[in-house]
Amino acid sequence: MSEITPETVRHLASLARILVTDEEVEKLAKELDVIVESVATVKGAVSADTPATSHPIPMSNVYREDVVKPSLSQQEALSNAPDQADGKFKVNAILDEE
């Protein structure tokens, strides 16, 4: 059974902010379906009480002193900005005009 439908791909692509053409959606759905079917074997490998590992080397309580360090200058901060105005990063409107 196909788990990854074109609809799923469209939804995921929108969550991930990637524009996809209809062609790409079809292709990705097929590819991902094969991959997902293959990696899904992990489900059968573990049980409810198997602990999860998120960090390979166990460590805890790593903290920084609350002491101010030099920041970038405004010019440095904006040096790679695709667009800027008034010392700020400039972006297109957030909402569509109604």
Binding site: V42, V46, A52, T53, S54
Partner: peptide, 10 residues
């Protein structure tokens, strides 16, 4: 998926 994968890691 992600959860099981983390368990496989263990």
């Amino acid at each position: 998926y992600y959860g099981s994968a983390q368990k496989v890691r263990t």
